[in-house]
Write a protein that binds this DNA or RNA. Structure first.
Lengths: 245, 245
DNA sequence: CATGCACCTTGAGCCAGATCAATGAGACCT
DNA sequence: AGGTCTCATTGATCTGGCTCAAGGTGCATG
């Protein structure tokens, strides 16, 4: 069973009534805007789906038919140039909402990094739902605004920061997002590969690897394993991230 | 009268009833979501303001008290690093809406490039207005989604494109935005300086200048004056912008 | 427990774009 | 008309991160 699947597996094509009521991700997501009493309406249009590592479940340029809400795992969103150069525009974890766009095609692709579970919602159905739940619309606006701020921060990183500053910024961001999941202070998992990190930070794999090694030898971080990081000097790393070093 | 003004000039502190009804920018902006009959309500909370070239009217980190709608001129939005490195995150023209953020402080600064006119709206008042005009909320969501897509495109540019590709992409974008304003086909004004272009594209002034010169000598563009560009070979430039050259 | 494979690290040399340094071209003033 | 100021162009040199090239490492498989 190791042949790469090209299609995500649909587990629950018609949505059990309590799909949403018991969803772990609901507390962190836009779905929260729908009150308990009406949660069945949301569940009715949700299609719970799994995606194996490496599976592309949103393809840039395809007709934008659905919204997505991640309930487990981590996703990479990216854009490609015709010659294959890739820019990862963000990583989406539990509770993250994907597919906001006015255009009728997706503006980016999305792939499962690890084992991913998500809910699919038909755009047309969500639109009618939104009319009844203005709170959800407000929530979506808040999500979009938050993402916009993050995107502007990333532009600053990509346009003006050095490799060292980029890695410092990235590690701080990841440590904040991972903090809820992991016990030991300042230590966290990196679900993505060096190649993903490079394409997110506008660098090459080699520069990412070299820079991480240097940050370790300079005492800013520990690298217990390839996929784990521990921050030794948070304040110093923070300064590094904003160029104050 | 050449001393730089540090504060924008408020022209119409309490908003004449027909301020919005006759606004040139309304057709291109979110204000359009308020129907004619109710336009006075919008006008009542609008404060029309002018900003001289170079004036900063939004300061990153300041309490986010207002929304802004540009009705004339061009604005640069940017973020700074402590040591002064600047990333311009976008240019805002007529009809552009600024100030979307969940945070209670502005995430970026904004400066008038040329003579700018804009309407200021108190956030608190807009919030109550939004409850009565869900169409306006939808419009805001659409604006945010559009900006998000543009931001992702810019990340691809900053992270993965060469200087030549960046300039080609930038010129195509500017030509599209300027097309409505200017008569002769493929020709348009650049309201911003080389320094602004450099900080928008993650390059230096010198590289911008050299690359523009090279694009001219290669026959892609003409540069009738420092602030004007004419695209000679749109298709070839388009290919260049996406790395297919 | 070797073998293969995918991913990561490290080294050596190179190059696109940065930096440093004049010079040129307008715009406005006296 | 000359002076000054700001911004753009052009040239010479330097360098951070890329490219090319070898290993190293961990894990799954036969």
């Amino acid at each position: 069973m190791y042949a790469p699947s090209t299609r995500p597996v649909v587990l629950d094509p018609h949505g059990a009534a309590n799909t949403c009521a018991h969803c772990d991700a609901r507390a962190h997501s836009v779905c929260n805007a729908v009150p308990d009493a009406d949660i069945a309406r949301l569940a009715a249009i949700a299609v719970v789906t799994h995606a194996e590592p490496g599976t592309t479940f949103i393809q840039e340029g395809d007709p934008a038919t659905h919204f997505f809400n991640i309930s487990a795992g981590t996703v990479r969103m990216y854009k490609l140039l015709p010659d294959g150069r890739r820019q990862i525009t963000g990583f989406a974890g539990v509770g993250h909402f994907l597919g906001l766009a006015v255009s009728d095609t997706y503006a980016f692709s999305a792939e499962a990094i690890d084992q991913v579970r998500f809910c699919k919602f038909s755009r047309a159905r969500v639109r009618t739902l939104l009319d009844d739940y203005p709170a959800m619309e407000k929530r979506l606006l808040a999500v979009a605004a938050t993402e916009l701020v993050a995107a502007q921060e990333q532009m600053l990183l990509l346009g003006r920061k050095t490799a060292r500053e980029r890695l410092a910024s990235f590690l701080i961001l990841q440590s904040r997002q991972g903090v809820a999941c992991n016990a030991s202070r300042g230590r966290f998992e990196l679900p993505m590969s060096r190649s993903d990190i490079a394409d997110y930070l506008g660098l090459t794999i080699e520069t990412v690897s070299r820079t991480l090694t240097k940050l370790r030898s300079d005492g800013f971080i520990d690298i217990p394993s390839t996929t784990e990081i521990a921050i030794r000097a948070p304040a110093a790393l923070e300064n590094l991230a904003t160029g104050m070093a």
